[in-house]
Design a binder for these strands. Sequence first.
DNA 1: AGTCTGTTTATAAACAGGCGG
DNA 2: CCCCGCCTGTTTATAAACAGA
Lengths: 594, 594
Amino acid sequence: MPDTQVVVVPQSADLQSVIDSLSARGKERGPQGPSKFILLSGGSGSPEDWPGSLGLSSWGEDGDARAFGNPLTLNPKPEPGRRTDRPVEAKPLSSATFPSKEQDSSPLNDSLTNIQWLGGMCSDGLGSGAGGRASEKENQEPCAQRLQLSQHLDGAQRPPYSYMAMIQFAINSKPDRRMTLKEIYTWIEDHFPYFRNVAKPGWKNSIRHNLSLHDMFTRETSPDGKISFWTIRPEANRCLTLDQVYKQLKPAVPQIKKVAIPISSERKMKPLLSRPESYLVPIQLSLSPSLFLPSVQLPLAAPPQNCSSLAAEFQGGGKRVRIAPKCAPPPVEEFKEDPLCVSLTLGAPAAPNHPAQRVARGSRRKQYLAPPPREEPVLLFPDSTFFDSGLTSDLSASQDTGLDSPGRACAFKTPIKGSRPASSTPSKPIGSENAAASSSSSLPSPWRTSPRVTDARDVLDFSPIRGPLGPSLTPQNQNRTPPFGFGFDSTPFREPPLFSSPRELLTSSVRRSPASWGRCPGQLLPDRGPGPGHHERQPEQDPGGHQLLGPGGRGAGRLQPQLVTPHPIAQVTPPRPPRAGLLTKLLTPALVSR
Amino acid sequence: MPDTQVVVVPQSADLQSVIDSLSARGKERGPQGPSKFILLSGGSGSPEDWPGSLGLSSWGEDGDARAFGNPLTLNPKPEPGRRTDRPVEAKPLSSATFPSKEQDSSPLNDSLTNIQWLGGMCSDGLGSGAGGRASEKENQEPCAQRLQLSQHLDGAQRPPYSYMAMIQFAINSKPDRRMTLKEIYTWIEDHFPYFRNVAKPGWKNSIRHNLSLHDMFTRETSPDGKISFWTIRPEANRCLTLDQVYKQLKPAVPQIKKVAIPISSERKMKPLLSRPESYLVPIQLSLSPSLFLPSVQLPLAAPPQNCSSLAAEFQGGGKRVRIAPKCAPPPVEEFKEDPLCVSLTLGAPAAPNHPAQRVARGSRRKQYLAPPPREEPVLLFPDSTFFDSGLTSDLSASQDTGLDSPGRACAFKTPIKGSRPASSTPSKPIGSENAAASSSSSLPSPWRTSPRVTDARDVLDFSPIRGPLGPSLTPQNQNRTPPFGFGFDSTPFREPPLFSSPRELLTSSVRRSPASWGRCPGQLLPDRGPGPGHHERQPEQDPGGHQLLGPGGRGAGRLQPQLVTPHPIAQVTPPRPPRAGLLTKLLTPALVSR
DNA sequence: AGTCTGTTTATAAACAGGCGG
DNA sequence: CCCCGCCTGTTTATAAACAGA
Ligand SMILES: [Mg+2]
Ligand SMILES: [Mg+2]
């Protein structure tokens, strides 16, 4: 049902206004816009938290106590000048005109107009106070103190994407997927006015930081050495584009857009850390029909599998939406306190109670210790496990409480990756990825072995787009065809995408054939030939991934249903939110004064 | 001359007081303490900047505007409780006694007593004000506002080591090189009282952050899954210990301790970012005799090579000392404006003007694009290039200006690493590390090829200890024996350590045979057998490294002599500090008001 | 329910190197 | 030609969000 959107509505929200808003947005969206909506009751939140009226809390007053312009202190430049090269904010806010010139970047073919965080070019009359020491450094006040006016439509809403994601958007928007730093800046400013109009100049520092930090991004130098271009390691490039985040590429594939409506929750974070509480993300829903409104039936491929999701948007009382889910199959039976899962059809039960496949307990994920052993762990990989977009979903909530509790075949514990996922190139046997970390040659044997237990967990597809090939249930981790087809790239993967954390996803490579690296679907690469024979050096094979969103314990199996249960309007009864904790408080509205 | 220390003295310092201080310290040190000192005139600085009287500037006033304890705001816990589990600072500073109990960690066999940043347990009478909202969160005020009193001897000086380095110290101090998080905390608090007495509780957050971020650190789980231990990937473990930083392991190897005396320079950094301006670091000096006082002659192994260093301590007007240098051979002749180098004996000139070995220009280092080609690039690897301790030294200052300028054989440009150094395991051919990044199968040919130019640069030994085997000059990158011998670990490396940045050093592995992984020299592993046959899975081969110190552009060829020239008291005439810039100002004293 | 542990992102900063005014 | 400031790139520090135990 490509024209369908699932909308999670705060309990306290006015349903009619939601509907009105959605209808309006659907019109803006044009013919491709969703015409049907699935409404789910979400956590809390009041109408004033809605996109347009979000108050952008308190990041202008940061002040920070650091004497900025002490002209006599010659301490080495606290980030030199570095003002935005765009004319905006160049002068001390003298009623700038925001020429919005230099729309030189990629064509704005993204139909961005309907996204709430994408306001138009700021056209406010600024000129507010505090303009004295005009910010010339990156570590300065936000570009515009003019927050009180036009709190929307000028990028007041920070986009919900992480820097890493935005950089990927930017680079992948170019046909050759290569961008200079300045171009990245410009692209982001053009597509996310927040950064031009609102963010402090330090955001450019963060861009550079991300480029350097993540080895997904590599720098290439022009032959003459004069120009540096940033690229995405082809093995790691999931070819994320901003388009894909809200525009479906292949209507044939069932896709549902999802709108998370913000829940009030004030942050004390620094400006760029605090995120808007809602945004549009595309996901491929794979929920059992019982989760939906009675009238809705998803034309799923295989037998409808479970695999969670949805609730993602509400974790932490409207924290932020998770894109690129860490989707792990729920344990087969036996699991306790997993409200959403209860009503879901479970994947084909893998060999239950597979001994030696699970770490006794203790696992905050990551802890890449050893590559998955040849005897593949039991990995539940139900059909509907994969989500089209990076919407966070994870029903692997089963806390893995009792150690070695029987009946929990798919424990999904501490996936292993051999501290570097590298080396399993097509030219080499897959088993060659033994580059591992756990070979500390002096460990007492119990220590060596235990972490090597290779339960797959979390994991799966972070791709915002879904290929037509529906993922097939692969309980034995064989013949699996992870949904990395990417629409046009149909190269199947021999190995299932096994990674346990966003970081790994981000850093590691795409589990596609080298021939398909860098071949992204769609019109983004019109001038590029299929380039099939190009994979000179076969990089390490590994599932590539990316994280769209901000900080948080993404490394672990997220979206514990008990934490984020969206109280679906459908029949699914929230089976008692177990062990609420602080997050429960967040889900209960009005506690936050605001 | 193992009993010799090089002391860099600020120009404005009172020499007699320096000598007195050094003498006193030497006595504290005991029989092993240095009895001879080499004094070098350094940048600037006034006596009050000396260790004991450093003012610890202004990190208590940060304030930060974020309302901390707003009891009604239920925003998810801004770092829960998390007070130091040690009793120190438990109450609101009620004249704490600092029981200093639980000296349970490794035996303090480090003879730490002579290090200035290691004060005794704080014994001040504290009880100062501001004790109202006792810090219970990690993101709180520093443990003790009592800075005004007893500004020394209680850890007032932040140790000069990065978190990564300290974690290595801690873990490697255990015989089995395995530590729980809490043990790491305790070890650091015991050995660096700063963190117990002065630092804000957030330092523990940073420890955890470092453990997670750097994949050098891996987590292992006990068989029952109840306990997590942090270890160092054996391939990456350089077996750094705090001992090695100031204690010479093998007196046969020439080692000289160095004392950098602080230069006044106020920072506006946050507490933990601002570092003390001086500390002891061991280096293996390899300077031509002309650089030293006439009476000093270093018994260097091979013909005295150049290779810089020294000046390291003074960059940025007493920024911070660099440990674990990024030592790169200086260009042979032709280089411009390299004062220190001028007077140094240069390494044997490698094949001059090796075409196609150098990137045309443009390089801020890192930019791992392709693995080093089989035809090894010309890498100047002069004997004295290596320093015993991690003292930063880098004479590769030659800006590599003119592209393909002849006469500069050792261009050291943009080393390449194939975005993941993995896969070249002993079991596999070295050539198999083709996991690379530059295989973007759609790049126009010029872009593909250019970054692949494989000039080695920077690089080399970050080890704080030096093995007896003197590095041999290897202009052709063959038969090189990088100084990774580590004293007792004499396993030679087949591949030279080729890495270009501290990060790479940190992340990548030690270029030792797998059998030698985890085998660190000395008494640290008394209870561990030689464990030769333990390397089950051969991890990626790659030079291991580590960085001891804090932030900064370590990735690039550092220690531009023009920036840090210490004005040695010896005959070396500072050949005109080229292109001073802002850093020049920093070197000139008194400009900073203080 | 709170704390501890672990993972990840955001932000600031230090500094190196290059370039252009 | 040199100085100097800005831009770019790398790395560490710090705070924070959040998950899991
Ligand atoms: Mg990078
Ligand atoms: Mg780690």
